[in-house]
Amino acid sequence: MIKALFIRGMLYYDGVSAVEYEWIKALKGRVSYDYALLDPDKSVPEKEAAVKELGCQIYPLRYESSSSLASHKNRERVLRDFLAQRHYDVVHIDTDLLSRYDVAKVAREAGVKKVIIHSHNAMRDLHGIQKIPLVAKLERHLIGKYATDLAACSKEAAKWLFSSKDQAKVRIIHNGIDRAQYTFSKERRQNLRASLGISDDTLVLGNIGRLAEQKNQLFLLDIFKEVTKLTKAKLILIGSGDKEAEIRSKIAKEELTDQVILVKATNQVPDYLFAMDVFVMPSLYEGLPMTLLEAQTSGLPCVISDVISAEMDFPGLIKRVKLTTSPAEWAKVVTDTANKSTFDRKQEAQVLTKIGYDNQESAEQVYQMYVGESK
């Protein structure tokens, strides 16, 4: 039995937590997983409970972070003490942060044989000293130095986190999901729409993700405002984050309170996807967004920004629009896409395995990385 440790900031209703859950479930009996959380107070109890039910131990690691330098030093000290008391065969670091090289460094110094840095996003904003090109270059170099293995959910995510000289070493392991969970159900669609008071003739737009600048929901509200000029519509926004207050304020200002349904992070994601008619994702950047994969598996046509990777497109379900395009033009694409949708939503789930994003396949690739030689 391989003993593996995920080192994360927190467990949340995000794509990475969902992917890890699938790996834990699929590899049960071959890999024993634990979690070390560096920002544990932001975790969601339901997510912690879910992995505990699968046998994972969760260890909250707390440290002072009054400055960037202090954060690095204190994080290293706390993690070093933790790893000195326990044995792990694998440390698996799912991240999009350049600064996580220090976690890999400590794990290597603690004698962990397999230390993986796994990139799950692309084009993350740089902050503070990392805005200096030489600093970012150095941190990418240090990631390659201290990690024994590099992995990424997409080519774009690999290019973002790892240096150009390390690209050949990166394993592309696509995020996988449970196909059965997202196979369309007309009955569940009707039940949820009825519970939300949504009539059959209402066009329902949807978006799932952190309420954050990256996800661009403020611009989505501009798009939705234009959609309401064209047809009877509602918008379902699922998530929470630092832009929530600003989003709520804009909803009120634009007099959209009765038409926008805000939902905190939820375990009912499949039902909400079934209830939607079009998934709209005008993100400023993404790695390989799990919510987009889930939406397509549920048979939803998706209108997304042109910066999002095409690696996991289902044939005929994706329409890309430039971020510089006006909200009115976005709205026209959204309504046209909804009006032209004539496919069988239930059948779309079959595409998941064909394009290589099935959870079982993804988990097997992770296992082979654990037992195989480092590149």
Results as ranks from 00 to 15, higher is better:
318 I>R: 01
270 P>S: 13
309 S>R: 00
321 V>W: 11
354 K>G: 02
351 V>D: 09
348 E>M: 10
317 L>G: 02
273 L>A: 10
279 F>P: 02
289 P>V: 00
320 R>N: 04
272 Y>E: 11
269 V>Q: 02
268 Q>G: 12
326 S>V: 11
320 R>F: 00
304 I>G: 05
283 S>N: 10
351 V>W: 02
300 L>R: 01
350 Q>D: 14
308 I>D: 00
361 E>F: 14
359 N>Y: 13
294 E>N: 10
268 Q>R: 13
326 S>L: 10
274 F>T: 04
360 Q>H: 13
331 A>Y: 02
267 N>S: 15
292 L>Y: 01
310 A>H: 08
337 T>C: 00
352 L>T: 15
339 N>P: 04
288 L>W: 00
279 F>A: 02
271 D>L: 11
329 E>T: 10
360 Q>P: 08
313 D>E: 10
260 V>I: 14
326 S>D: 15
338 A>P: 06
258 D>G: 15
341 S>P: 01
281 M>N: 03
301 P>Q: 04
360 Q>K: 13
357 Y>E: 11
344 D>N: 11
310 A>P: 09
287 G>T: 10
334 V>F: 01
259 Q>A: 11
330 W>S: 03
297 T>I: 05
329 E>K: 09
291 T>F: 13
331 A>P: 05
272 Y>D: 03
317 L>N: 05
269 V>I: 15
338 A>W: 00
274 F>M: 11
351 V>S: 08
295 A>W: 05
289 P>H: 04
312 M>K: 12
328 A>C: 08
359 N>C: 12
280 V>N: 04
358 D>N: 13
357 Y>V: 15
335 T>N: 00
318 I>E: 03
326 S>R: 11
356 G>M: 11
265 A>G: 15
282 P>I: 12
308 I>V: 14
312 M>R: 13
363 A>D: 11
292 L>S: 01
262 L>S: 12
358 D>V: 13
286 E>H: 06
316 G>N: 06
306 D>C: 08
277 D>N: 09
326 S>H: 05
277 D>K: 01
333 V>Q: 03
319 K>C: 06
297 T>H: 02
261 I>G: 12
331 A>V: 02
266 T>N: 14
291 T>E: 04
333 V>N: 01
285 Y>H: 10
271 D>H: 06
345 R>T: 04
284 L>E: 07
266 T>H: 10
265 A>M: 12
341 S>H: 05
352 L>M: 07
359 N>V: 14
277 D>A: 07
335 T>E: 00
347 Q>L: 14
260 V>N: 09
293 L>G: 02
308 I>L: 07
350 Q>E: 15
341 S>V: 08
307 V>H: 01
332 K>F: 05
338 A>I: 03
298 S>V: 00
262 L>W: 08
357 Y>M: 12
267 N>Y: 13
356 G>K: 06
357 Y>S: 12
284 L>V: 05
338 A>G: 07
311 E>C: 06
260 V>Y: 11
284 L>N: 03
269 V>P: 10
288 L>H: 05
359 N>L: 13
292 L>R: 00
279 F>M: 11
278 V>T: 02
270 P>H: 07
344 D>A: 12
305 S>F: 01
338 A>R: 00
298 S>H: 05
263 V>S: 13
323 L>D: 07
355 I>R: 02
290 M>T: 06
281 M>V: 07
320 R>A: 07
301 P>N: 01
340 K>I: 09
305 S>K: 10
